[in-house]
Design a protein around this nucleic acid. Sequence first.
DNA 1: TGCTTATATAAGTCAATGCTAATACACTTG
DNA 2: CAAGTGTATTAGCATTGACTTATATAAGCA
Lengths: 133, 133
Amino acid sequence: MHAFDVLGDPVRRRILELLADGEMSSGAVCAVIQEEFGITQPAVSQHLKVLREGGFTTVRPEGTRRLYAVNAEPLREVDGWLDHFRRFWTPPLMALETELARGRREQRRRARSAEPQEPPESHEPHGETGRPS
Amino acid sequence: MHAFDVLGDPVRRRILELLADGEMSSGAVCAVIQEEFGITQPAVSQHLKVLREGGFTTVRPEGTRRLYAVNAEPLREVDGWLDHFRRFWTPPLMALETELARGRREQRRRARSAEPQEPPESHEPHGETGRPS
DNA sequence: TGCTTATATAAGTCAATGCTAATACACTTG
DNA sequence: CAAGTGTATTAGCATTGACTTATATAAGCA
């Protein structure tokens, strides 16, 4: 399931917002979501599963509870896709600092990658939108 | 349809990528998409409709053609939602410049809002994705 | 005017998704 | 161990959404 599909659901977006403020137990998330959206515990649990499997969260068992936290990787991917369009709302004055920022992001990205990454390629030729070749 | 739902489809994401390089006719988009995804012209046309109605594109008729172009507003909205999480991948050093950028964005946003362009997004059970503060 | 091209819409099908109710699993505690 | 929480899974149903074929609208041109 592509990142954007995962984010397509309002409940899942809301859950991520909640987790952005810090680790929460499944039950705590449930409480808020059930209150706000009026859905059942299994429904929330299923959403948590989608987030988990999509890599949007990490889980840490603590006793009988499961503590969920944001894993930002996929969100960064989404952010990266938006790079295609940022110039539409980024005035020329901001271009430099944005580029610098992007550069640093890239550096760190590479640095972090012990796993072999595509060498000097400009990033995301077009792809990763998930189409069949 | 929420911005993220619109972006949930790979064909639509690809169309936006194409339009990012500049205005294109429906037919030109069709050609590429049909080639890449193997779907029919009506299918592409329907995706264009979703993008149009979601505010992601503008259309300009020229003779018998319809020229589509990106309208970045909804994408900015998505970008704005990501602000909730940017600190996860934005090192402290970048915090200031990011904040400055955000500030300028806000200023412009307000400035631009001379026009009462406020579609308050009434759907979504509770707080949309923006919760009742 | 009628033919052709460019694009959009309509109707119907099929698969995917989100929900509920019921149930299973896993820790904790009496 | 038994009972009680906290959480996940299953099965079934209803809805949504992307697709196809067929057709409509509209502009350009003989």
